[in-house]
Simulated scan of single mutants.
Amino acid sequence: MQRAKDFFKKEPVFVIAFLCAVLSMFLVPPSADYIGYIDFRVLELLFCLMAAVAGMQQEGVFLVLAQKILAGKKSLRLLTLTLVMLPFFSSMLITNDVALITFVPFAVLVLELTGQIKHLAWVVTLQTIAANIGSMLTPVGNPQNLYLSSFYQLAAGDFFAVTIPIVLLSFVLLALCCIAGKNHTIEVQFQKREEIQSKRALLLFVLLFLLSLLSVFHLLSSHIALAVTVIALAAFSPKVLKKVDYWLLATFVCFFIFAGNIGAVEAVKNFLGNVLSQNTMLYSVLSSQVISNVPAAVLLSNFTQDAKGMLLGTNIGGLGTLVASLASLISFKIYAKTPKAEVLRYLGIFTAANVVMLIVLYGFAAVCLL
């Protein structure tokens, strides 16, 4: 029983996705049709990207970069801006959850070293928003983008035409939040200097990441990218294969089965189709607040051809509640474990900032859809 509780705490989304998939099987009994539900291209690309990023993270490249940027005398405003923009820009390539796993603990360290821990709740909130919105820019920034770009077969130009305006506005709003308030000069000194573990290994992971990008943009088969990645890692860095989030891959399989079964029920199919035809972006935003944006993307995409509305809704919908984006739970857990963490204060700041940002970006996106 304790093992089950511990597993649920560690992988709550997989457990929920698995239960949803099993329950949906009572509506549509298991058959060979289930294979058709699964988007194997998305699974292959997710694996390749996670493996490459895990390898780069293992070599310490992100922490080395962060130390070089932050070391020395800085104004508090510039320090805050830097800590927030690190996950904003990095999430565009290494995904929002990896960006937060890397840079939220780093922010805790920096603010402790400089005696500015009282600002931690605000900084972590901004980092979370930054990662969730920065990741919107690219197809590889988060799982729902990878899925939607594959599902709707979006060309690069069409994809970026949707995401760039929102991300640019978000950058401006986040920068304004960072420079608000009092300002003074502080000095950042790190007791331990981070170093690249192996430049040769790092080169391998960078090449594998570029290979994955070629596949994302349909310039290379995902089968080839998967084969090269697995062979290269098995031969040169087998440890990285253990760091891939296989539960995330299993979660996607469960969501594919659930969405496929729900879509096979005519009454549900007609209902969701009618609702989404009224306002795809609005209902994908609302769904994300309850079931999170990744499952919302997988489920709702089966009932609409409005790729733009889905892309905007599930990305902007990552703002709002704590569960709207699973990446938000990562930063919350890290903050909650820090000494003297004020959880209720953090939730208040997080919710207020997210709701305001959600309203502003939704209004701007609604105008862009006209």
Results as ranks from 00 to 15, higher is better:
45 L>I: 12
279 N>A: 06
168 L>K: 07
36 G>Q: 07
82 T>E: 15
340 K>M: 13
234 A>L: 12
334 I>M: 05
308 K>R: 09
147 Y>S: 08
299 L>W: 01
361 L>Q: 13
244 V>G: 11
60 G>D: 04
137 L>V: 03
132 N>G: 02
83 L>K: 12
179 I>V: 12
346 Y>E: 07
83 L>E: 11
69 I>F: 06
362 Y>R: 02
296 A>E: 00
259 A>T: 15
323 V>A: 06
276 L>G: 14
152 Y>S: 08
314 T>H: 07
18 F>I: 00
336 A>S: 14
70 L>R: 02
9 K>Y: 03
314 T>V: 15
246 Y>T: 06
192 K>E: 14
91 S>L: 08
171 F>V: 11
209 F>W: 12
147 Y>M: 04
71 A>W: 11
149 S>L: 02
219 L>Q: 15
209 F>I: 05
354 N>A: 13
59 E>D: 15
46 L>C: 11
22 V>H: 00
103 F>T: 05
30 P>S: 07
170 S>G: 14
27 L>E: 01
185 T>E: 10
62 F>G: 06
36 G>H: 14
83 L>Y: 12
205 F>P: 11
104 V>S: 08
107 A>D: 14
182 K>G: 13
25 M>R: 03
291 I>R: 01
155 A>I: 04
17 A>Q: 00
118 K>H: 06
49 L>P: 10
270 N>D: 15
173 L>H: 04
54 A>W: 03
134 G>I: 04
305 Q>E: 06
235 A>G: 10
152 Y>H: 15
21 A>Y: 00
225 A>P: 10
260 G>Y: 10
214 L>R: 03
355 V>M: 05
243 K>D: 14
303 F>Q: 01
10 K>T: 01
60 G>Y: 09
244 V>M: 13
295 P>V: 02
52 A>H: 10
99 A>C: 05
176 L>V: 07
134 G>Q: 03
304 T>V: 03
274 N>T: 11
147 Y>P: 04
109 L>K: 12
163 T>P: 13
246 Y>S: 07
335 Y>W: 08
139 P>M: 00
129 I>P: 02
269 K>R: 14
77 R>M: 06
333 K>G: 10
363 G>R: 03
140 V>H: 05
83 L>F: 13
353 A>S: 14
270 N>F: 09
331 S>Y: 05
106 F>M: 10
63 L>V: 07
181 G>M: 09
145 N>A: 02
113 L>T: 06
58 Q>F: 02
31 S>P: 11
321 T>N: 05
125 T>W: 03
12 P>D: 01
24 S>D: 00
357 M>S: 15
264 A>W: 13
351 T>M: 09
141 G>M: 00
111 L>K: 04
12 P>F: 00
31 S>L: 06
202 L>P: 12
223 H>M: 06
328 S>V: 05
242 K>P: 08
324 A>I: 02
116 Q>N: 12
6 D>G: 01
8 F>A: 04
28 V>W: 04
197 Q>R: 10
106 F>S: 03
59 E>M: 12
172 V>G: 11
327 A>L: 04
